[in-house]
């Protein structure tokens, strides 16, 4: 009873402003004839029509697929590479300048090169997203492994834990909080690259939808697509946070 009330209160405290803003937007834009700012009601109408025609679904699916596959590729390569590099002080020192270069490279710059080379289908886009996602994960994995307590290393030595087992049961779990932080950065990189690659050259996807509707001056649809991409980014990060919370339960609970 009490908890329901406090939950409701917390919800109200957080919800009043967003709701108010949407309401203001709705009424302030109503009857607006400026073509660049279509009424929110019209944006909503175009959302309903596009969704019921089934077209929007395909765009949404194409974008989500590219993000998820690209991210998965980046995470696998990043974690494996980061583990190999993180375990060797020598390798870390030798590769460091190259890793820093790739981390600070504005990743969108690879899009024209990859799309120019391999065409406007989905696969090159996934390549580009995957490539960009590697670096945050890789560097965070290296840092996470380096930060593992020397006491843990002593334990592994003293009890003669085999190398493979120590990698999977000690090193990777120990670095997991950092790795997760890296994946989170990669997720937002992936969304940005998805949008840019689809606006740059594509035949499907939400970014593509935004791009063609702009060309056709269907501003209500452009706005709708833009809001949808924002919502997509938000939902993906919410889902990721839920996964992270589960995976790192020991970490959050042991800290408190």
């Amino acid at each position: 009873m009490r908890s329901t009330r406090s939950f409701l209160l917390a919800f109200l405290e957080q919800a009043w402003l967003p709701v108010l803003l949407v309401v203001i937007w709705w009424f302030a834009s109503e009857g607006n004839t400026n073509p660049f700012f279509p009424p929110l009601s019209k944006i909503w109408d175009s959302f309903v029509t596009e969704m019921s025609s089934g077209q929007m679904e395909l765009h949404l699916w194409a974008s989500t697929r590219n993000i998820l596959i690209g991210l998965a590729v980046g995470v696998v390569v990043g974690v494996v590479g980061g583990t190999v590099i993180g375990l060797s002080r020598r390798l870390r020192a030798v590769l460091n300048p190259y890793l820093q270069f790739f981390r600070t490279l504005p990743q969108v710059a690879i899009i024209p090169i990859i799309i120019g080379a391999f065409g406007i289908t989905a696969v090159p886009k996934i390549w580009a997203i995957g490539f960009a996602c590697i670096w945050p994960v890789l560097l965070n994995t290296v840092d996470g492994i380096r930060a593992i307590d020397p006491g843990v290393r002593d334990m592994v030595d003293a009890y003669r834990i085999t190398t493979w087992r120590s990698i999977f049961r000690v090193v990777l779990p120990g670095a997991l909080p950092q790795i997760m932080a890296g994946i989170r950065i990669s997720l937002s990189v992936a969304v940005v690259l998805m949008v840019v690659s689809e606006i740059y050259a594509a035949t499907e996807g939400v970014g593509y939808f935004i791009h063609i509707t702009t060309g056709l001056f269907q501003t209500d649809k452009t706005w709708m697509g833009t809001l949808l991409v924002g919502l997509m980014g938000y939902l993906l990060s919410v889902i990721f946070l839920l996964i992270e919370k589960r995976a790192l339960r020991w970490y959050h609970e042991s800290a408190s």
Partner: peptide, 17 residues
């Protein structure tokens, strides 16, 4: 909520608008 939305919003998607 606005902050969470803003942080995960790929702002470059606003470019056409």
């Amino acid at each position: 909520f606005l902050l969470d939305l803003g942080r995960s919003f790929p702002v470059i998607a606003l470019l056409p608008v």
